[in-house]
Design a binder for these strands. Sequence first.
DNA 1: TTGTATGCGTTATCAT
DNA 2: ATGATAACGCATACAA
Lengths: 360, 360
Amino acid sequence: MDSRAAAPRPTMAQIAERAGTTVPTVSKVLNGGTDVSEATRERVMSAAHALDYRRRPRTRATEPDPRAGRIVDVVVGHIEGSWIGPVLSAIEEESSAAGVDLVLTRARPDGEWIRRLLRRPSLGAILVLVDVSAAGLHTLTTAGIPVVVIDPSTRPPAEVASVGSTNWEGGRMAAEHLIAQGHTRIGVIGGLRSHLFGSARIDGLMTALRAAGVVVPDERVAFCDWDRERARSAAGAMLAARDRPTAFFACSDVMGLGVYEAADDAGLRIPDDLSVLGFDGVQESAWAMPPMTTVRQPIAEMGATAFHMLEQAHRSPRSRAAGSPASRMELETELVLRGSVAPPRPEAAAPEIDLASPTP
Amino acid sequence: MDSRAAAPRPTMAQIAERAGTTVPTVSKVLNGGTDVSEATRERVMSAAHALDYRRRPRTRATEPDPRAGRIVDVVVGHIEGSWIGPVLSAIEEESSAAGVDLVLTRARPDGEWIRRLLRRPSLGAILVLVDVSAAGLHTLTTAGIPVVVIDPSTRPPAEVASVGSTNWEGGRMAAEHLIAQGHTRIGVIGGLRSHLFGSARIDGLMTALRAAGVVVPDERVAFCDWDRERARSAAGAMLAARDRPTAFFACSDVMGLGVYEAADDAGLRIPDDLSVLGFDGVQESAWAMPPMTTVRQPIAEMGATAFHMLEQAHRSPRSRAAGSPASRMELETELVLRGSVAPPRPEAAAPEIDLASPTP
DNA sequence: TTGTATGCGTTATCAT
DNA sequence: ATGATAACGCATACAA
């Protein structure tokens, strides 16, 4: 009976011997200590890898990753807006736990930021709400920089990973909630027609509405470029029409606030006279008066996921070399019920509808 | 002539002796190394403090770190909140123009972030809304890292530069506006009693009110820890009192929104039944319904200024060595008139006042 | 030279 | 016992 046949769990002593150093040094490497040379670090890590070493159950508190000193690039389009806070917060959380510095760059239209990224030896880049061309992305990936795009505005090339949320499903949930509350005259405030995720929300909404026999005529759909003021006037116009909507679906909370204003302009109260359903779940929607019912995107989780995908890509560079298709993660959206959706007033809704179910 | 009379620049050896340890250990402490106990760290730092040690200009180490001087550390307390967006945006604008990367770090209570900063060869650190102890600041400056604090919550030590705005003056402007509109019963929603800049706002307000013969009794002043919900209930309580205020001054826009809610709870309309004046000028205040009159702080400019001060300190390291007093910049606040302040209703204000000018 | 930074092993300690 | 961690200082390398 050869006792080696069992599972002789590798120890730091073995690693140390193989790497030609001592146990404490191995410990330091594995815990991200500062007093180790890069060369020794490498030897220890490869020895550990060769022996397939696994850490014993954590005895100590935090787990600083040995890959200390690296950086991750976070590139944002618009820094304003409350989207960015939770994303940055989440990425920072993950990166700092991994001993990776977060370098924040704003993407200006001149594209200079791409060249700066190329000059930096980073773990990879996370692009948040950046309007970047396929060529730009290609430049980065060609240079060997793993890229993860959060909520891409257009479909990214195959070699670029992306993180999003279930926008279509979110739109569907919104529709079902509005229908369940009894709404049939629904106004839609879209973002930019060309935006991938915005369209998916509307598609999901429309599909579910159609399935329920609710028709949304073209004049009740407006694309407002994610702009609150434009949403306000578009909604205002719809509310001035003869058969005004009893409810609005806005593709973002900020545009939803524009609808709030339009309602105020028209002397309508929310939710008694008009229901509003937003999308995003940012703080503004919770603070609105009344608090806005919305489809929440897991914004923080999306940031954390993006970072993990980058780490993954970094660990197995094969995927890049082999040109394997980059992954796309979709996190779940969630309907958050707050105070801005209620059944339509009977006197307002019932008498005026003549357009129920003109579909098969 | 005894040459010691000049400037016997303290050395690590002296610190080591005083702290009862060796030079390498001192070096490690000053560089954020890991192999030092917390107790030793303290001893070393206090010895360094006692000797008024300043690290020599960063000697280009063995490997001329390509990042040296090319990064600026931005440390934030709470990433949430719309304060952070404009600040980051402005700093990024300046730093990227200067070819400097922005490294974003979140300050967690454990203080680990300080050690990470020590390990990084940065141009300096900008602290935004960070609750940091004097000892923590001292560690950074002793290690030769220039620090600029934006809106410090307590008075920073002499060697730390800071950027703020004219809070006192802003409070004064708020008072004068409310008085000009005819308000005499004014509720005050403060932040945290201990906060430097929050107190200045209230001081300015009170001084101007007093000068106009308006008295604010204690029960019309509440400290709500910058919290919207607490502001809501505090304002609600004041509105329920017999002589309810006709106007509120809130030390932040977010707390101002809490007052909006309290007004709504009480069935009062803004500005007809109640005036509200905020402080900060963040986006939320512009988007409130009605848009909030507020004292705007030049948030973006404060960020840009902080970066410039850092560059300055970096160019002339003499100022550090000579122990010249660090500068404090105060940028101008500005009253932004929007829709939330109007004269008090005559029927509400006139009949009930019995407390006008009980002061000399 | 002197001052500072870094790598690594020794010793002591902690957790099973 | 044994595996792992923590802290310190020696030896050394390097910069002015």
